[in-house]
Design a protein around this nucleic acid. Structure first.
Length: 592
DNA sequence: CGATCACGC
DNA sequence: GCGTGATCG
């Protein structure tokens, strides 16, 4: 039984493991873990606190307000009233006293409201567990307690008990998790990247970004009118009213009533997605209206109407949450609201960006973005001379790729050829399949395959890097990034060729995307430190995968520009080197 | 709550 | 390839 459960753990069949745990007779018999705690005063623990080298820390919070302070020196968890925070403050700010946490960022965030800067966080359960198994979807006390301490902790505890358990685990998971991190050679990425990044993210979240609510209100009304007109026109052309937002209803209108030819199927019926609509554009006038409707409806519901509702009434700003333990590759994600998918491509979408503004009208937004970081990482890892040279000579990389692949002089590269080369470059970074490239370029898979072949002819070391990465991944069942971040690939053991192919593409993508993520994380840490060292007032407020966004004091514009450029470009010594473009403006649209 | 769709890198 | 979120049924 034990063996089976271990096997499941390795394969990360999360739900199966859960079920097994519940069914195990030992689990039934064994007393469920009961956290021991006692209500203490500062005076009662002060002696122990003074001589302690490390302490596990947690809070019981209601939203951002701290209600109780939880401390543990290994055995019982001490519960102190929030009123004692002032007395504990020097210990929290003492970087020599090691703080062990279950999830440090919310703690750092909450303490900012009491003007306490938590220092000396040396262990964070969430970050450690994430680095060990980045493809898990959550890292609950119950899972981690069982996995690393063989404790049976029930799910769905009330928030008081949960906070106690988390504090207990913060203390007792340090040893086993640290050991595993060392075994996996993950100490560097843990200690030098993830752990120091966490307070940087907390600070960015705390600062938030300014948003012009009135601008969005006005826009919402304009969009409502436009959507209304499109709606009427769509009903008229369909000959009836229906729910335009329902893909199934739209499908029956298009493919049954109007007898349009279905382009592709989904699990449940005929697809009506934007690529399908684009192909049907000349078949019926309703299509163009639908395309426009989709875009407007999306922009209105997801951004224009949603964002103003999320403005914090106290700060009047938008505060995203940067999730540090979500992606399989090491990227951050952003939620509530997601500020990493604000529209940019279309004019309609761009107007959203115009509403993102600095706190004071005299300030500026500064955007610093890495130029082609993923392709540069690819050039670095593959050591391909042609690709490396393109960057060293500051060429337009897609144009250069087109010239290579199609055997043209650079000045003879058409828009069309460049577009194709760009798609091939994207495909390479994503772990290409001829099917995917064909779909992207609307060509048949055979033609796509010849493009890939032509590409590999001109960039042979990219080809061998990809082959090496994939065969390595099969051997080890994981891949690693520049900083040693790891991703397990259980898909490569599948008997299903489609799942194995997915695993192969993930292997390539994870190395490239994950290495780029490592670099920008390093840059964020370095930039944040440099801003304080140089005494600048400007602040980093957002990260969008390959770019950093700052609220810049107008007077600091040039100092900030050079600081950010220098720190980002020197975050990692890459060959070809990293290049950063900087622009500024009164809002996010004009700073791009 | 899964499926579909659409936004970003 | 990697995400988050709105909407539907």
């Amino acid at each position: 039984m034990k063996k089976a459960s271990e096997a499941f753990s390795e394969l990360e069949f999360n739900t199966l493991l859960e079920r097994l745990k519940k069914l195990t007779p030992e689990a039934e018999k064994e007393a469920h873990f009961e956290p021991s705690y006692k209500e203490s005063s500062f005076e009662q623990i002060s002696t122990e606190l003074k001589k302690a080298k490390k302490v596990a820390l947690n809070f019981i919070r209601e939203s951002d307000e701290i209600n109780s302070i939880l401390l543990s020196f290994g055995d019982s968890v001490h519960v102190l009233e929030a009123a004692e925070l002032e007395k504990i403050k020097p210990y929290l700010e003492d970087k020599k006293l090691k703080k062990l946490t279950f999830d440090s960022k919310p703690l750092i965030f909450a303490l900012r409201f009491d003007e306490i800067r938590l220092a000396g966080v040396s262990f964070d359960v969430q970050l450690g567990a994430y680095l060990l198994q980045p493809t898990r979807t959550n890292y609950t006390a119950s899972d981690l307690g069982f996995r690393y301490l063989k404790l049976y902790i029930g799910e769905g505890q009330d928030s008081f008990r949960q906070a106690i358990i988390d504090c207990y685990l913060a203390y007792h998971l340090e040893e086993p998790l640290t050991k595993k991190l060392t075994e996996g050679k993950l100490e560097k990425v843990y200690n030098e990247l993830e752990l120091p990044l966490s307070p940087v993210l907390a600070a960015m979240e705390y600062r938030g970004i300014g948003i012009n609510k009135e601008e969005l209100k006005t826009y919402s009304n304009e969009l409502a009118q436009m959507i209304n007109k499109l709606e009427e026109e769509i009903y008229r052309l369909a000959g009836e009213e229906f729910n335009i937002n329902s893909p199934s209803q739209l499908s029956s209108i298009l493919f049954e009533k109007l007898k349009l030819k279905p382009v592709k199927k989904t699990k449940t019926g005929y697809s009506t997605d934007s690529t399908v609509l684009a192909k049907l554009i000349n078949e019926h006038p309703i299509i163009e209206n639908m395309i426009n409707y989709r875009e407007l409806a999306k922009i209105k519901s997801t951004y224009v109407d949603a964002l103003p509702k999320m403005v914090n009434p106290k700060t009047k700003r938008l505060h995203t949450t940067f999730n540090q333990t979500v992606t399989a590759t090491g990227r951050l994600s952003s939620s509530n609201p997601n500020l990493q998918n604000i529209p940019i491509r279309t004019d309609i979408g761009k107007r959203i960006r115009k509403a993102f503004v600095p706190a004071r009208a005299t300030d500026l937004l500064l955007v610093a973005d890495y130029s082609q970081i993923e392709l540069r990482v690819l050039a670095h890892l593959s050591k391909d001379e042609t690709l490396t040279k393109a960057f060293e000579e500051h060429k337009d990389v897609h144009q250069a790729t087109a010239a290579e692949v199609f055997g043209l002089p650079v000045n003879k590269v058409s828009e069309e050829a460049r577009r194709k080369a760009k798609a091939v470059n994207f495909g390479i970074v994503y772990g290409i399949s001829s099917f995917g490239l064909a779909q992207q370029l609307q060509i048949d898979a055979k033609e796509a395959a010849t493009y890939i072949e032509m590409y590999f002819n001109r960039y042979p070391k990219v080809k061998s890097f990809i082959d090496r990465t994939v065969s390595d991944a099969y051997k080890k069942e994981f891949v690693k990034t520049l900083y040693g971040r790891c991703r397990q690939l259980p898909e490569l053991k599948s008997n299903d060729v489609r799942i194995r192919n997915f695993g192969e593409r993930s292997a390539i993508n994870s190395v490239i995307q994950g290495s780029a993520a490592d670099i920008i994380k390093q840059a964020m840490i370095n930039v944040e430190n440099a801003l304080f060292t140089d005494d600048l007032m400007s602040r980093m407020v957002l990260q969008v995968h390959d770019e950093l966004i700052f609220e810049a004091m107008a007077l600091e514009k040039s100092a900030l520009s050079s600081l950010v450029k220098k720190q980002m470009e020197s975050a990692y010594v890459l060959h070809p080197s990293l290049e950063v473009n900087i622009s500024t403006g009164p809002n996010w649209l004009e700073a791009k």
